[in-house]
Amino acid sequence: MADHCPRTLALSALLDGQLQPRQRRELLAHIDRCAACGERLRELETLRSRFQALPQERLGFDLGAVIEARLRVQPRPSRTARRPGMRWLLFPLSGAAALTLGLYLGSTLIRSMAGDMPAGPPMLAMAVFDPIPPGNLCPVPKSCPSGNGFR
């Protein structure tokens, strides 16, 4: 390695376009002289292209229909964040909905009944609603530690 090798931190930031123009120029000049950093940058670029080439996974069924069926037996969303008490609301479903659900949910239902998945999700609910809710839910953005600078 040559004089002062910036290693992965700077190279990774370079890859993401996160360096100031001057830092960028200096790093590129260094890479010109340093085979190790040049090689490292190529590895990072290759990694990126491998990620981008990954095919998107497919769920393989119409989840929209499943969710719609579940929502039909559930009240509309309200401003007060509710804690969902039941993981699966299967039984008030009627014929067509049940058919839509049947194939996929069969295995899920069996798992639920077998009890290897925790039933009610108080932990899940906590993860989403407390202390920082899923989206920009903070009533006062400035009071939110993760809310600053987000668009």
Partner: peptide, 18 residues
């Protein structure tokens, strides 16, 4: 599935900045 059920419940709180 859980994600979308949670999203439905939290939908009134979603703000278009995100």
């Amino acid at each position: 599935q859980e994600v979308f059920m949670k999203a439905w419940q939290a939908l009134p709180e979603w703000r278009s900045e995100a």
